[in-house]
Simulated assay, not measured.
Amino acid sequence: MEKLQSAEQFTNLANAEDVIFMFTAGWCPDCRVIEPIMPEIEKKFSDYRFISVDRDEFIDLCIEKDIYGIPSFIGFRDGEEQGRFVSRDRKTQGEIESFISNLWK
């Protein structure tokens, strides 16, 4: 999964592509649990670009986007947020896939 390099890149990607941002942190145990399943999810949903956003590196962006729990996901299309899966709960592969499947229906 690609890593976000700048807040400007976040805006550019959100405005130009079907993109799913995954907010995470190196110290987050729930993030580590889903890390091994993300390549399979990315392959299954290859129409979308997946970008990892480090919560600690982009704390201002997280505050702006109301991301207070990780791991969390936000999907964008044409600059508009299409959906979010934001909570402090551990997420399963099925829950993540269901969220993505229902983004652009």
Rank of each mutant, 00 (worst) to 15 (best):
L4I: 10
Q5A: 13
E8Q: 14
Q9M: 09
F10D: 03
F10E: 04
L13I: 11
A14C: 02
N15G: 09
A16V: 09
E17M: 12
D18C: 13
F21H: 08
M22P: 00
T24C: 05
A25F: 01
C28T: 04
C28E: 05
P29N: 11
D30N: 12
D30S: 10
D30G: 05
D30R: 15
R32V: 12
V33F: 03
V33M: 11
I34D: 03
P36I: 10
I37T: 09
P39Y: 07
P39Q: 10
I41A: 01
I41H: 01
E42R: 13
E42N: 09
E42L: 07
F45H: 07
F45P: 00
R49P: 00
R49V: 07
D54W: 06
R55A: 12
E57I: 12
D60C: 10
L61F: 02
L61G: 00
L61A: 03
I63S: 11
E64D: 14
D66R: 15
D66E: 15
Y68I: 14
Y68N: 14
Y68K: 14
P71G: 06
F73C: 02
G75L: 12
G75K: 14
F76W: 14
F76E: 06
F76A: 08
F76I: 11
R77Q: 15
D78G: 13
E80T: 12
E81H: 08
R84C: 01
V86I: 15
S87Q: 11
D89Q: 15
T92N: 06
Q93Y: 05
G94N: 10
E95C: 05
E95T: 11
E97D: 04
E97W: 03
F99Y: 02
I100L: 04
S101F: 01
N102H: 11
L103I: 09
W104R: 15
K105C: 08
